[in-house]
Design a protein around this nucleic acid. Structure first.
Length: 206
DNA sequence: CGGAAGATCCACT
DNA sequence: GTGGATCTTCCGA
């Protein structure tokens, strides 16, 4: 069905803030051992690249870690943080700009019985337990460094058309965990589906 | 080469 | 709300 058709690379070739908004409602599909795990993207953040102090591409920084940011739009940028977590981004914007969208939270749709033990849980999960945060989401979908640089348009990790939401159903806020970024910390580049209970932490609606 | 920081999560009070 | 876990990555000396 068309909800499971991958978004094309051209989808990501637009301003990163726009891509971050339009990724809400889309499906993140992980193929794992012949099984399909699916979450609906409910929260994102835009990182604008060289002009954004919170971005790993701030001032055009190029390192071994962030090489994927300069590969091509539509590829995954996966990095390791805090000694124990991974974060998943979709590279977006213009070539060489270093823009990307952080996938901060998803609503589990398929494969929850597999995600639950991957998360180390033994009880039925409550909203947000499985993928309500960038680190949780990666753990639930078995996303790690091996998926850094892969295309999101095909293969073991894809983003599909899903269920696009209305523009007026998007909640906006400040990005999380980047207080070091000065003025950029106040830019309203965090987005979520209005009222969704699977977000990483409360929005103004709560 | 060493130190410090980090796009987080969890347990505990 | 606070503090600790944990370790790769990066930058300055």
């Amino acid at each position: 069905m068309s909800r499971y058709r991958s978004l094309p690379a051209s989808f990501y070739r637009h301003p990163t803030e726009q891509v971050a908004r339009e990724l809400l409602g889309r499906f993140l599909v992980r193929r794992l051992d012949g099984q399909k795990l699916v979450v609906r993207i409910v929260e994102t953040e835009a990182y604008l690249g060289r002009q954004d102090r919170a971005s790993h591409a701030w001032q055009g920084r190029r390192t071994a870690r962030n090489a994927s940011l300069y590969e091509a739009v539509g590829v995954a940028y996966v990095y390791f943080i805090y000694g124990m977590h991974y974060c998943l981004n979709a590279v977006s914007g213009e070539a060489d700009e270093g823009g990307a969208v952080l996938i901060r939270a998803g609503e589990p749709l398929l494969g929850t019985e597999t995600m639950t033990p991957l998360r180390g849980l033994k009880r039925p999960p409550r909203p947000g337990d499985l993928a309500g945060g960038p680190g949780k989401l990666c753990q639930a979908l078995a996303i790690d460094k091996r998926l850094d640089g892969v295309s999101l348009t095909r293969g073991a990790l894809r983003i599909t058309r899903g269920e696009p939401i209305d523009a007026d159903s998007v909640a906006t806020g400040r990005r999380i965990g980047i207080d070091y970024a000065g003025q950029a910390a106040e830019w309203p580049l965090r987005f979520a589906i209005q009222g969704n209970r699977h977000v990483s932490r409360p929005f103004p609606w709560n």
